[in-house]
Design a protein around this nucleic acid. Structure first.
Length: 292
DNA sequence: CTGCATGTTAGGTT
DNA sequence: CAACCTAACATGCA
């Protein structure tokens, strides 16, 4: 479900509601959702105050009093939503958070049970390992930084965009949409892309992410925001999920092909594989190691 | 019944 | 190391 724009939409919906509140009760119904001991997870949170709600990549980051952090990753089908405390428990509700002086609850539900909640206790000067391992935020880095990052890699472009260590927050939908806007084939090798095409990709990516945030995310399966509203960006998708339909640019039929193990939708006419001249390629081994 | 799914990671091989 | 592949996680849907 959630990529960067969907997580951003959820975070914005939760921020006003949760900031400054204190947890009163934390009930865990499915232990495997919690990293570490579910008992200590609940005990630790109860009484802690929420200072801020943020996003990093696809993670929801809840900053707590004492320098501690609650991290929530929704993976494929996780959902967070705010409901009255007396609302009936939806199927697959795995964690319920209650707050001092508030009649409603924050509930985590997830049919596929892939989502994870983690308490990171503060350690002097250290950001949590999970967040530290992420690549930079696509909406925060410079053109120059993106181009130089891409130039340090030798891979197909689509799996590179999906690699959270390379760049944080891009998933299957927005990778395909950005590649179509930039007219790049998902299997294109990045070492064969000219600088100006890499820049075009970055601009397309930023644009599609920003438009999707403005539209409240993409609801193609189950995505709804923290208050149950669907997103609107699915109406503007140009390739994702449109196999066999006409390209909105040229009319050719959209193809679907596995790239790096993921379904990839693209226009065969608008997104050709490019073969720019390779410059500064290491040609040969300079010194031969004699071994022993 | 089959195949597929907006994500991540462990454990391989090249 | 870097890149690449597959399976696994568990459920619902077409």
């Amino acid at each position: 479900m959630p990529e960067l724009p969907e997580v951003e939409t959820i975070v914005r919906g939760l921020r006003n509601q949760l900031t400054h509140l204190k947890f009163s009760k934390v009930a865990v119904n499915l232990e495997k959702c919690i990293q570490g001991s579910p008992r200590s997870f609940a005990c630790f949170l109860e009484g802690k105050r929420i200072l801020h709600v943020e996003r990093r990549g696809k993670n929801i980051v809840i900053r707590l009093s004492g320098g501690h952090t609650l991290l929530i990753h929704l993976r494929m089908t996780g959902r967070l939503w705010v409901v009255p405390g007396d609302a009936p428990l939806e199927k697959h509700t795995h964690v319920v958070f209650s707050f001092q002086g508030r009649p409603w609850q924050l509930r985590f539900l997830d049919p596929r049970q892939f989502g994870r909640l983690t308490v990171e206790k503060s350690r002097a000067g250290a950001e949590s390992a999970a967040l530290a391992a992420l690549g930079p935020e696509p909406l925060e880095i410079s053109d120059r930084k993106f181009v130089s990052l891409v130039r340090s890699k030798r891979r197909s472009v689509k799996p590179l965009l999906l690699d959270q260590h390379f760049l944080a927050g891009v998933g299957n939908i927005y990778a395909d949409e950005a590649l179509h806007r930039a007219q790049i084939h998902p299997r294109q090798r990045v070492e064969r892309l000219e600088g100006k095409i890499i820049l075009r990709l970055f601009r397309a990516l930023r644009q599609v992410l920003q438009e999707a945030i403005r539209a409240g995310g993409t609801s193609v399966r189950t995505f709804v925001d923290a208050h149950g509203s669907a997103g609107r960006f699915q109406k503007f998708l140009r390739v994702y999920g449109r196999e066999g339909e006409a390209c909105r640019t040229c009319g050719a039929a959209i193809l679907r092909e596995k790239v790096g193990g993921r379904s990839s939708y693209y226009c065969p006419r608008c997104q050709p594989i490019r073969r720019y001249k390779l410059k500064n390629q290491p040609r040969e081994i300079v010194a031969i190691d004699p071994g022993n």
